[in-house]
Design a protein around this nucleic acid. Structure first.
Lengths: 113, 113
DNA sequence: TATACGTATCGTAGTATAACGATGAAACCG
DNA sequence: CGGTTTCATCGTTATACTACGATACGTATA
């Protein structure tokens, strides 16, 4: 097992202000996309796993869920397409981590309701 | 047009503390259900309409969306099933309003990510 | 180079969602 | 009573989602 350059892919939270509007058609669409991505138990659990560990998680996500590898991979893709997570290739494996900016955006949009 | 007893169905925010856990299997499931309900543009827009007006909205929701009446009715049902809104029958129409408790719950769960 | 490992992608089947028009049911108005 | 308004439900069609096994692909290790 390699040390893995996991620390590379998890960006520091970087609290640069988010200037995007919190209302309007575009914000609505954004919220819908983000919420839809979160709208599945498996994906909520994946997010929880990634949030809990500040470091990146390589693949062991599959072991924590009662789902086939291909299914988990699909859920990861959904989250990635929504921008909520990022996957960094690290040798033979892939390291996933939260995209803090998107998660913060989701929180802001929901809080704005 | 009747005065409508709209004020009856919109409960005061009532900030009684929410003792439900913010994590764990049950919370995850709850978040998934709520997020799924929000995960559609039309439903986000409906929520926005209901939040904006503190008073209940009787049916004019259909006029504000570019969707057929039956489609809007379905979306309302989804939101109602998720517990996010409530529909009070008021004579021939139905008054919809936010269920503050559920909305607050959603905010707490998302913020807890 | 061959083998093993970790993931992604493909193909598929079953189920759910979204949209609409048409129809129904309940409450009001004439 | 008969018609109108308001909303829900039904039936249908098209599309999307979820899950799985099988397979392909890239990277390390023997």
């Amino acid at each position: 097992m390699k040390p893995s350059s996991a620390s590379d892919c998890c960006p520091a939270p970087k609290s640069e202000p988010d200037l995007r509007p919190i209302e309007g058609e575009e914000a609505d669409e954004e919220l819908a996309v983000l919420a839809k991505a979160v709208g599945h138990l498996a994906r909520v659990q994946i997010l929880r796993i990634l949030v809990r560990r500040t470091t990146c998680v390589c693949g062991d996500i599959v072991d924590e869920l009662p789902l086939a590898q291909s299914t988990v991979s699909q859920h990861l893709k959904v989250l990635k397409d929504a921008g909520l997570i990022r996957g960094e290739v690290d040798g033979p494996r892939v390291c996933y981590c939260i995209e803090p900016r998107a998660l913060r955006r989701l929180k802001v949009l929901v809080a704005g309701l």
